[in-house]
């Protein structure tokens, strides 16, 4: 297939996945911020949401205060933020339009309808401060991702077009899972609260809920929410569909399909396998001992390196 087509499909999937992630991170932050606490000071939730989404620099170039209205406007609606939900959907459609021939009618319909609906949310005026409007918008973003993903899964031919779009999705999802887990690192516990205390507990629960994993957690561990088990679920549990291991399992599989179809393996396939092996051999105990934040930071770098390798190998031909 055309290298540009593969590139567009890859990014289209990434943008759609990212829109979903941003919606989830805003929801998670709203929950974290609403936790009652002794003092009103030290509220770092919205700053942490910016860090987790990798947008803190662009944000501070545009805004002074990282409070809810500003951050929500920036992450959800802003045209100045290249990774806002609005822009993700805009870019996704631009990519989709460029490769319409590689999309099924259902995928096009999903993205095009979402783009048309997007015009109904302005997010610039007064409505912006309205949590109900925000919440409708976040639901819309998540539903869009879901419909798009579902239509791709159900209707695409299983050939390289499909594999590249899945690779984009899983690279993005792995990145997002790592980042959302890292939010907790950036949310500082007030000095009056203890680790393992009720605020700590509440924060981890909110995090699980934000990735629709609270029920899964209970099924798997059958005990109250513990930080290392949450990390275990989101990093090492094969059966958890957005865990880092599950993402890499899928990446290795789809990259193998591409390698087989083209009769050649390359640096992308080798790197994905290396990351996969490291995850398989890791234990949550070791990860916590050497530092969860450090582990996640390394992972995000490795993951983005996979993206670069694939760009060199296939998308820039």
């Amino acid at each position: 297939m055309l290298a540009r087509t593969a590139d567009n499909l890859y990014w289209l999937s990434r943008y759609m996945e990212r829109a979903d992630f941003l919606a989830r991170i805003i929801e998670a932050t709203q929950r974290l911020a609403s936790v009652p606490r002794a003092s009103g000071k030290d509220e770092t939730e919205w700053e942490s949401a910016l860090i987790a989404s990798g947008a803190e620099e662009t944000f501070h170039a545009n805004y002074e205060v990282a409070d809810e209205p500003n951050v929500v406007r920036f992450l959800a609606f802003s045209e100045d933020n290249p990774s806002s939900i609005r822009n993700c959907i805009e870019y996704a459609r631009t990519n989709a339009r460029a490769v319409r021939t590689a999309l099924t009618a259902e995928m096009w319909d999903a993205i095009n309808s979402a783009w048309l609906d997007l015009q109904n949310f302005n997010g610039q005026g007064e409505a912006m401060h309205d949590r109900e409007e925000t919440s409708r918008f976040l639901e819309f973003a998540k539903a869009t991702s879901l419909v798009f993903d579902g239509s791709a899964y159900r209707t695409m031919l299983r050939n390289d077009a499909y594999w590249f779009s899945r690779v984009g999705l899983y690279i993005e999802r792995a990145d997002n899972t790592a980042r959302i887990l890292d939010v907790k690192y950036h949310v500082l516990l007030p000095e009056t609260e203890s680790i393992g205390g009720s605020l700590d507990y509440y924060q981890w629960t909110a995090l699980l809920r934000s990735v629709s994993a609270l029920t899964a957690y209970r099924w798997i561990y059958r005990e109250s929410v513990q930080p290392w088990l949450v990390a275990d679920l989101l990093i090492l549990k094969q059966e958890m569909p957005r865990s880092l291991l599950a993402c890499y399992d899928a990446l290795v599989r789809f990259l193998d399909e591409i390698g087989q179809a083209y009769g050649q393996q390359g640096p992308g396939q080798r790197h994905a396998r290396t990351v996969m092996r490291r995850l398989e051999q890791a234990s949550i105990k070791d990860i916590f001992q050497s530092g969860l934040h450090e582990f996640l930071t390394d992972f995000v770098e490795d993951n983005s390196r996979l993206g670069d390798l694939l760009t060199q190998q296939y998308l820039l031909n």
Binding site: L2, A3, F164, N317
Partner: peptide
Amino acid sequence: YMRTTEGP
């Protein structure tokens, strides 16, 4: 030639 994922 066209540029494809498998080369020209």
